[in-house]
Design a protein around this nucleic acid. Sequence first.
DNA 1: TTATATTTGCAACGTTGTTGCATTTGAAAC
DNA 2: GTTTCAAATGCAACAACGTTGCAAATATAA
Lengths: 135, 135
Amino acid sequence: MLAIDILNKRRLKRTGCREGIIDIVISADRALSENEIKDRLTENYDRTTFYRSFKTLKKNKIIRKIVIDNQLVKYELDNSLTRKKEHAHFYCNSCKFVKCLDETEIPQPILPDGFTISEIGLIVKGECDKCSGNN
Amino acid sequence: MLAIDILNKRRLKRTGCREGIIDIVISADRALSENEIKDRLTENYDRTTFYRSFKTLKKNKIIRKIVIDNQLVKYELDNSLTRKKEHAHFYCNSCKFVKCLDETEIPQPILPDGFTISEIGLIVKGECDKCSGNN
DNA sequence: TTATATTTGCAACGTTGTTGCATTTGAAAC
DNA sequence: GTTTCAAATGCAACAACGTTGCAAATATAA
């Protein structure tokens, strides 16, 4: 999976910032925060450019936003590109990493009549094995 | 249920800001944002005081934070005071209100060995009956 | 009424995120 | 390779959010 192909397929211009973000998210083994991504970029981009790139990539369903908390957001490759289904996320309060919980079932929400769903998010917080001392 | 009693029971000082926030959250029929609460307060408090009151009330399990999105947080009376169990929340993308989904089951997360849970949050986004045009 | 630990308000600061605008650049056409 | 033009970038400015340190005010307990 190449950043270039992903951008071309969506008729988005190939720019350094976009390619960099996509490459990093593709090769990451877990969801990353904006700063974690920024630190891994080989080149420096203006804050504005960086934010705008995220917005574009989100809108085009290339990356997916995982809201852990206000002021704490992580990004991963969109489900449509990973061919993963909707899944929950675990956040370790100590080491701050995020892990996909592929086994945990996302419930079918029971909504009042007339309500429609566009998105669902399930966040589990706690301590991972290394931080809980239970490993 | 009185704000005074809630504060006394936890040995917290009864201050205007704390009492005001608690009173508003008790009488609200849905989760409110900080600004919605601020607007309903009869007195004005400094931003710092307001934030610190929230922190204290959260820490003492009087109010509960519902993270809708980064930059959008709502508060409701803590489950321990409402005697409600853990429940999901619905957020209407159009009218921005939050509704408790008491019927929707919160799944038991399946975690790797050694992982522990402290908190779980299930947010459903979409359109309510009034905004979806399906009512 | 007094004493004291807590809370408040203010000033200052840092982060996050957006907008407008001039400049630069990617991609397509020639 | 050169030209063209819409789109993306970098910069400045701005607004909201959130925290910290500190002096002054205040709630509670003695």
